[in-house]
Write a protein that binds this DNA or RNA. Structure first.
Ligand SMILES: [Mn+2]
Ligand SMILES: [Mn+2]
Ligand SMILES: [Zn+2]
Ligand SMILES: [Zn+2]
Lengths: 127, 127
DNA sequence: AGATATAATGATAATGATTACTAATAAATT
DNA sequence: AATTTATTAGTAATCATTATCATTATATCT
């Protein structure tokens, strides 16, 4: 059974405390402000643990992984210039039916879907 | 300007000749059947080149990247058990409008979107 | 066709993110 | 307080991908 270590609580607090979809290195730097001698391996280990427990989400973004403390269903926008990831709260009428539609067409069990938009964000557009 | 080397043609043919969304190692093995002494670095170099030219697509899938010779707009289904990626040809009524909707809501320039479904594929379900 | 310029190659070293290892520590339970 | 064992810090190892560099081959130009 899992033990609620100070390190795990600190990592979870950092991931939940931002909307910037940070990577492990950033989470490590932030966590060090609370626990200066925490090791990078501990950060990775706890991130994996929290993912397995369903407490945070992992985003697959090319070279390195990013993490999301918001486990509610929502979408993302990734800027091609600054690579920042923004949350997109979108009320798609057919979002709920879309999984069933694919399940019906393919015969697969469809449990979820990821939707990511791409382009240029407002800040990058104005520079 | 780019030179159409035998190696580049072979890599492109391999990626176009399958629907299995292969990784670099698999493409390397297949290309070696035509060019036995091709190097893995050359495969990577050409994959990157072909991506920059818009001739193939790169899929961000966790540990390693996968490639797709089908550059038409289509969606994917990733099986959580066997990790295979299937194409999903889906007629979303408002596929074109969905980008505009996000653009309008956010003020971003939205050029594209990726949609990936997850669950258990038919073959894995039956075993 | 032959000479030229340089993009591309093969071989290998380097990089960077993530994971594995291990002796020491600390959270939960009795 | 004693016990159990999950977790940690520190470090080594792994794995996919990229960089380096001397050599080769492709496109272009006489
Ligand atoms: Mn998010
Ligand atoms: Mn595809
Ligand atoms: Zn941006
Ligand atoms: Zn499967």
């Amino acid at each position: 059974m899992s033990r609620n270590s100070e390190q795990r609580k600190a990592v979870l607090a950092v991931v939940r405390g931002t909307t910037c979809h940070p990577d492990a290195a950033w989470i490590y730097e932030q966590t060090r402000k609370e626990i200066p001698n925490i090791s990078l391996g501990t950060v990775y280990r706890n991130l994996r643990h929290l993912i397995n427990d369903g407490e945070i989400l992992e985003l697959e973004t090319g070279n390195y992984k990013r993490y999301d403390g918001n486990i509610q269903n929502h979408y993302h926008f990734k800027c091609a210039r600054c690579h920042e990831i923004y949350d997109v709260d979108l009320e798609l009428d057919n979002v709920i039916n879309i999984n069933n539609e694919v399940a019906h067409k393919t015969g697969f069990i469809v449990t979820h879907h990821y939707l990511e938009f791409g382009g240029i964000c407002k800040r990058c557009r104005e520079t």
